[in-house]
Design a protein around this nucleic acid. Structure first.
Lengths: 236, 236
DNA sequence: GCATGTGAATAGATTCACAGCG
DNA sequence: CGCTGTGAATCTATTCACATGC
């Protein structure tokens, strides 16, 4: 019982465990008791060898010739991800996005509980969202101490995101999820992840352009140099 | 002029180009004319060797002993990412998140234009958000054809996300950004990216737990077997 | 002299392929 | 026999270190 997490789990594997978890939850709902790496791979949108290798980092939890026990694997992954406890979360910044996040009862799922909302704008302080009232960002240290905040979500404009991150860290928060389009720096003992809409769109744009260019190359004769007016959208 | 994109740009590099772009935009605003890989690396939160290698895939756009011309590099990256044109975007699903996204004039930045909002709920159809009216999801084929939609954003509940993806693809959309917590499958000629809040939180939870466990291991004597009540949060 | 550009070295992730075991 | 678990092979990405050229 002392030998918890003797293995070093690769980052890429950690990032996939939530996918397996979600797939297993679906299977559990449909009363399926065991699942093969093949099927789990299909549900999670990866390949079977990857599933087996990933799960092998957690331990030998499968049965050869049979597969994995859904409930047991669910529990093991939950435990590994630290979801057998509830992490108190604070959302900083209650503009459009902050509001949407605060109302995400569904998305949050098990393991996380929004316990505080803070904003720097005095006109927002006091506003009730769900069953929480918005408090001032200056109260962060007190809130963090009282509620034992583990995770801070930054949903502010980019211009103040670093300052907010600093305040969260100063208040003792050691995990930060940043929605602001800005590069943040935090001390080494703090985890930082980001969700960036515009980056995702730009990546899509890259491949989209590439496809359009490839189509044009096929359609146009590969002879003459530069096509004069190539600015019509080619999404047919 | 025909030799556009002769190099094969690695995926990891593509994912970082938007970071460089953003950093360069900041530099351009502060009237800086040239920038070293070192400084750009600092702004983008990566290391300098990576910046140089990444940029070298685009071409030899730097000057030895000097650095990169900010404006020129800005243009080259924009072009490479396909941001010299505007991509028409449709948002599907106007719940909390869809609303927030529709109002994100800021986050969207250059290169993208939200031209349509659709939802399956008849009570939402007709609602005006900004200067757009919500239309019914059944109109997608017509909308896609009229507006030349390039990118579809899925902001629906997970339960209908795959169906929406199928409809987008059927309507000719070839880039999809999925916010729903579901694994989607699309044909090979369609790009798919996802943004998943709960996955990000779960990844943070993994490392958070790991830290807490490490602290406890330090604090507690490494002798006795299982600590009886280990369910107090340890965020001090 | 100084910062880029890039081969070579290293590290990390994915995939293969099959031995091992229920 | 079927499916897991895992070494070995492969592929991709990162980092090093220095020759190159302004």
């Amino acid at each position: 019982m002392v030998e918890r997490s003797r293995r070093r789990i690769p980052e890429a594997t950690v990032a996939r465990l939530p996918l397996y978890l979600r797939s297993l939850l679906e299977m559990a709902e449909s009363k399926t008791t065991t699942i093969s790496s093949e099927r789990l791979a299909e549900l999670a949108g990866v390949n079977a060898a990857k599933v087996r290798k990933d799960l092998s980092y957690l331990g030998s939890y499968g049965t050869r010739g049979v597969g994995y026990d859904v409930e047991f694997l669910l529990y093991q992954i939950s435990r590994e991800l630290g979801l057998t406890q509830d992490w108190p979360v604070v959302i900083v910044g209650l503009g459009n996005l902050g509001h949407a996040l605060a109302n995400y009862r569904g998305f949050m799922a098990r393991g996380f509980r929004i316990v505080a909302l803070v904003d720097a704008d005095p006109s927002k302080v006091g506003e009730r969202i769900g069953d929480l009232a918005v408090r001032h960002v200056d109260d962060l240290p007190a809130i963090a101490a009282d509620e034992g905040i583990a995770i801070g979500i930054i949903a502010t404009p980019a211009s103040v995101a670093q300052e907010v991150a600093d305040r969260l860290v100063a208040a003792g928060v050691t995990s930060v999820l940043n929605f602001a389009p800005a590069v943040l720096t935090v001390p080494a003992h703090v985890s930082l992840r980001k969700v960036d809409l515009s980056i995702e769109l730009q990546i899509l744009s890259f491949y989209q352009q590439r496809r359009v260019a490839a189509e044009q190359a096929l359609a146009a004769p590969p002879a003459a140099s530069a096509p004069a007016s190539a600015d019509e959208a080619a999404t047919a």
